[in-house]
């Protein structure tokens, strides 16, 4: 008995030596984790937290705002919006590049059912002749794919 107690004490004291042993973050309720994910740099970054641990597997799916910047494709977006836990959305923004009408058609109907806020759809179509060149130059000046970024989905520095 005493042996067991000693073992437990040893196990407990070990992580606390490193500063903090407990996983306080994962212990927070879903709605608080969603508040944290909303402040990360864009939806893709929030989605990547799913590989932290099983607790995080579907937290991102509760985000009330989605910003898809060139990825994923329309069918994936539909799957995401169609998930049983998907909440009411206060904002969805989708940016595509040179997409055909089928791309938006895949997710627009389901988005209409989920959405109570704003919808932003932007399809970047390469213009012809001089305009495209001008566009290219502007992109270069602004740095890597700044043109396709939303204010809320900035990439990490």
């Amino acid at each position: 008995m005493a042996q067991t107690g000693g073992e437990i004490a040893a196990k407990r004291s070990k992580p606390s030596e490193d500063g903090a042993g407990e996983d306080r973050l994962s212990a927070l309720p879903d709605d608080v984790l969603v508040l944290i994910l909303l402040r990360l740099d864009g939806t893709a970054t929030a989605v990547r937290t799913s590989i932290l641990s099983p607790r995080w597997r579907r937290v991102w799916a509760l985000l009330p705002e989605l910003h898809f910047d060139l990825v994923p494709d329309g069918h994936r977006i539909r799957e995401i919006l169609d998930a049983p836990e998907a909440p009411v959305l206060r904002c969805i923004s989708v940016t595509t590049k040179d997409a055909g009408p089928g791309s938006a058609a895949a997710w627009l109907p389901i988005a209409a059912r989920r959405l109570i806020g704003s919808l932003v759809y932007r399809n970047m179509v390469p213009g012809n002749d001089g305009e495209e060149e001008e566009e290219e130059k502007r992109r270069e000046r602004q740095g890597a794919d700044a043109k396709f970024s939303y204010p809320v989905s900035r990439r990490p520095p």
Binding site: G21, D23, L25, I36, D41, L52, S53, P54, W56, P157
Partner: peptide, 19 residues
């Protein structure tokens, strides 16, 4: 959490990866 790899995030918050 920002700018950190999953491993770094796990380290900062003591998240156990039991996948």
């Amino acid at each position: 959490m920002k700018g950190k790899s999953p491993d770094q995030i796990r380290e900062v918050f003591n998240i156990k990866n039991d996948y």
